[in-house]
Amino acid sequence: MAFQTMAEELKELVVRWAGILESLPPETIADRRNSQDRSIRQIIGHMVDSATNNTHRVVHLQYRESPVEFPNYATYGNNDRWIAIQNYQEEDWQLLVNHWKFTHLHFCHVIRNINVEKLGQQWIADTNQFVSLKDMVEDFPGHFELHIAEIEELINLK
């Protein structure tokens, strides 16, 4: 199974949303907060972290012995630490949007080129929790869309 269609759909979303994000006023991206107390800036930063971590997982899972030990940045509040340490709240907005855009476009390229013989390779996501390369990649669009929905909700707050 190739991920061509998934990559193309994700690419279209990224390109469309990059334009939307670039046009948002400063107070919308910085001041409004979701249920996790994240601003749009911080959500975008988290999405960068997710795409870069998943890119590394995809690469490692294609050449290392399975199951792969790889840090799960998303558990135990670590993703919030990543957001705070990188201070996405203060990063130049154009730079951050471009970083988000190109990180995701690169991830689309990476998933288009997955060796299908490696889809069963697993990484250790948590204690006694194993995730295959196939499942990880198939779950990515849902995670992406979840955060886009959060951003959309924050944009539409009056």
Rank of each mutant, 00 (worst) to 15 (best):
M1L: 10
F3I: 02
T5D: 07
A7E: 01
A7L: 04
E8Q: 12
K11H: 09
E12D: 13
L13R: 13
V15P: 14
V15A: 11
V15Q: 12
L21P: 08
E22C: 07
L24I: 04
P26K: 11
T28A: 09
I29H: 03
I29Q: 02
I29E: 02
D31N: 15
D31T: 09
R32P: 06
R33Q: 09
N34D: 07
S35P: 11
Q36H: 15
R38C: 14
S39L: 03
I43W: 03
I44M: 08
H46G: 08
H46L: 12
V48L: 08
V48C: 12
S50A: 14
S50Q: 11
H60T: 15
H60D: 15
Q62S: 04
Y63V: 14
E65S: 13
V68W: 07
V68I: 10
E69N: 15
F70C: 13
F70H: 14
F70P: 10
A74M: 15
T75E: 11
N79Y: 14
I83S: 04
I85Q: 13
Q86S: 12
N87R: 03
Y88S: 01
Q89W: 01
E90W: 03
D92L: 02
W93I: 03
W93S: 02
L96K: 06
V97G: 01
N98K: 07
W100M: 04
H106A: 10
H106M: 08
F107P: 00
F107E: 00
C108V: 01
H109Y: 02
H109I: 03
N113T: 05
N115I: 01
E117G: 04
I124K: 13
I124Y: 06
D126F: 05
D126Y: 08
T127F: 15
Q129W: 14
F130C: 03
S132E: 03
S132V: 01
K134N: 04
K134C: 10
K134E: 10
M136S: 06
F140W: 12
G142A: 10
G142T: 11
G142L: 06
F144Q: 06
H147D: 06
H147P: 09
H147F: 06
E152P: 07
E152Y: 12
I155K: 11
L157Q: 14
K158G: 12
